[in-house]
Amino acid sequence: MTGAGPLGPWLRRYQARPAAAVRLVCFPHAGGGAGSYRPWDTLLPSSVELVAVQYPGREDRFAEPPVAEMDELAGQVAGALRRVLDRPYLVFGHSMGSAIAYETVQRLRRLGVAEPDALIVSGRPAPGEVTGGEVHLRDDTGLCDELTRLGGTPAEVLADPQLRRAVLRYVRSDYRLIETYRPAPAPPLSCPVSVLRGGDDPELSAAQAAGWSRVTTGSLDVHTFPGDHFYLVPQRQAVVRTVLGTLDPALTRTGGSWAGIP
């Protein structure tokens, strides 16, 4: 199944797996959409169903205004997810998606939903360790320079005036959201937290990755991959294997290897 379908505007499920034992909920980075996780779907075993969050203002929600504040965004996503979390689940977020994933889990807990089996974050320090930022205040050239620095945005998109204008509209809003985000005090989670990072990522050092221990009373582990901020694109198979490794291997292991991954 593709598109919004019965999951509503906030969630995308590219392949329904009714018998799946676990749901994997994925949150995109600033400027990203649910489609960035579509390639993951073919790497997952039948026991894991992928659900990707779709922020407004991009892809099939392009005509909608982006959400400007974290409270509203996380609240809307939590309300949508609450209706589909009828089995154990994992949460994964990259970069800005890490902060939104954390805030969404906190809101789900306040709604009486059990915590995920694991919170898996990538490419961003823990909430409260990054405050402020001025990227969203830059002109279009400055914003493009930041996207080029981090990678992940095709050069041909930034070179085309119409495409660039369209992309920068929601990218600027995303940067405003994450740069003005100030986490409210909240009790620590109890679920395990895994932190993924690129070894050359300027946005997350190994020391900063360890700071995620402050958001949970559960265990913390850190995984470093070759690459920069968008290491998870060339390292997709290794990343998905690591994400699946947070589960009970009995749920996902087939014939001695992760399904679809050598």
Rank of each mutant, 00 (worst) to 15 (best):
L108T: 04
G227N: 15
R149Q: 13
A210Y: 02
G133I: 10
G75R: 10
A19R: 12
P88K: 14
D201T: 02
S98Y: 05
V195W: 04
A184Y: 01
V239I: 14
Y102K: 11
D117Q: 15
G142Q: 10
G31N: 11
V25F: 04
R82W: 00
S122L: 05
V171W: 02
D145S: 13
A186V: 05
A80C: 08
Q235E: 10
V215C: 03
E146N: 11
G245T: 00
R17M: 07
R172T: 14
T224F: 09
H223A: 15
L90D: 05
L108N: 06
P185I: 07
I178A: 09
G227D: 15
L251W: 10
W10E: 03
G97M: 12
G199W: 00
T153Y: 06
A19D: 11
V22I: 08
R13S: 15
V25Y: 07
G133F: 09
R58Y: 06
P66T: 06
D139F: 00
G75M: 07
A250K: 13
D60A: 05
R17C: 04
R82A: 14
V157K: 10
H229L: 14
P262F: 08
Q237M: 03
Y102V: 07
A80E: 05
Q208E: 15
Y181M: 00
A19F: 02
V67N: 01
R164Y: 03
H223L: 13
L163H: 05
S190A: 15
S213I: 09
F230H: 07
P161A: 12
V130K: 15
R164C: 04
A210N: 03
